[in-house]
Amino acid sequence: MTYKLILNGKTLKGETTTEAVDAATAEKIFKQYANDNGVDGEWTYDDATKTFTVTE
Protein backbone atom coordinates (compact mmCIF):
# COMPACT_ATOMS: atom_id res chain seq x y z
CA MET A 1 0.00 0.00 0.00
CA THR A 2 1.03 3.59 -0.54
CA TYR A 3 1.22 5.87 2.49
CA LYS A 4 1.76 9.62 2.43
CA LEU A 5 3.61 11.91 4.82
CA ILE A 6 2.88 15.62 5.07
CA LEU A 7 5.69 17.59 6.72
CA ASN A 8 4.78 20.86 8.43
CA GLY A 9 8.18 21.62 9.90
CA LYS A 10 9.57 24.98 10.90
CA THR A 11 12.29 24.74 8.28
CA LEU A 12 11.02 21.91 6.06
CA LYS A 13 7.59 21.59 4.48
CA GLY A 14 6.46 19.12 1.86
CA GLU A 15 5.13 15.67 1.11
CA THR A 16 6.57 12.25 0.41
CA THR A 17 5.18 8.76 -0.08
CA THR A 18 6.34 5.24 0.66
CA GLU A 19 5.22 1.72 -0.13
CA ALA A 20 4.73 -0.38 3.01
CA VAL A 21 2.92 -3.53 4.10
CA ASP A 22 1.07 -1.73 6.90
CA ALA A 23 0.70 1.61 8.70
CA ALA A 24 3.13 0.65 11.47
CA THR A 25 5.89 -0.02 8.94
CA ALA A 26 5.14 3.23 7.10
CA GLU A 27 5.23 5.12 10.40
CA LYS A 28 8.72 3.78 11.18
CA ILE A 29 9.96 4.80 7.72
CA PHE A 30 8.41 8.27 7.98
CA LYS A 31 9.67 8.90 11.52
CA GLN A 32 13.20 8.04 10.39
CA TYR A 33 12.79 10.33 7.37
CA ALA A 34 11.56 13.19 9.56
CA ASN A 35 14.36 12.62 12.07
CA ASP A 36 16.97 12.58 9.29
CA ASN A 37 15.61 15.94 8.12
CA GLY A 38 15.48 17.51 11.59
CA VAL A 39 11.68 17.56 11.88
CA ASP A 40 10.28 16.66 15.30
CA GLY A 41 6.71 17.41 16.26
CA GLU A 42 3.17 16.19 16.79
CA TRP A 43 2.19 13.16 14.70
CA THR A 44 -1.29 12.29 13.43
CA TYR A 45 -2.54 9.54 11.12
CA ASP A 46 -5.69 9.41 8.99
CA ASP A 47 -6.52 5.80 8.13
CA ALA A 48 -9.11 6.79 5.52
CA THR A 49 -6.48 8.56 3.39
CA LYS A 50 -3.42 6.59 4.62
CA THR A 51 -1.79 9.92 5.48
CA PHE A 52 0.59 10.78 8.30
CA THR A 53 1.14 14.41 9.26
CA VAL A 54 3.92 15.79 11.44
CA THR A 55 3.64 19.38 12.67
CA GLU A 56 6.36 21.26 14.52
Rank of each mutant, 00 (worst) to 15 (best):
D22E: 04
E56Y: 05
M1G: 09
F30D: 00
K4N: 10
G41F: 03
V54K: 01
A20Q: 06
G14K: 14
T51M: 05
L5Q: 00
T49Y: 06
E56N: 04
L7M: 08
A34L: 08
E56W: 15
K10H: 14
V39F: 08
A24I: 14
E27W: 15
E42K: 07
V21Q: 09
N35H: 15
K31Q: 13
E15V: 06
K13G: 07
A26I: 02
L5K: 00
L12F: 14
N37K: 13
Y33K: 03
Y45W: 06
V54W: 04
T17A: 07
T18L: 10
K4R: 09
V39E: 03
Q32H: 09
T17R: 10
G14S: 12
K4I: 13
N37R: 08
T51R: 04
D47H: 06
M1K: 13
D22F: 03
F30E: 00
K31M: 13
E56G: 04
W43E: 00
T44P: 00
Y3K: 00
Y3S: 00
E27H: 13
I6K: 06
T11F: 13
I6R: 05
T2L: 09
L12H: 14
Y45F: 08
T17F: 14
T2V: 11
D22Y: 04
N8K: 15
E15P: 03
V21E: 08
K50W: 12
E19G: 11
T2K: 08
E19I: 12
I6Q: 07
I6H: 05
F30S: 00
T44L: 09
L5A: 03
D40A: 15
W43L: 03
T53S: 07
W43R: 00
A34V: 12
A48L: 09
I29E: 10
T25F: 05
T16N: 08
A24S: 13
T16S: 10
T44I: 08
D22P: 01
T55Q: 11
W43M: 06
T25K: 06
T49L: 09
F52Y: 11
M1L: 11
T53M: 08
M1Y: 12
D36P: 01
K28L: 11
T55L: 07
E15R: 05
A20R: 03
E15N: 04
E19L: 13
D36H: 09
V39R: 02
G14Y: 15
E42N: 12
N35K: 15
N8G: 04
V21L: 07
I29P: 01
T51E: 05
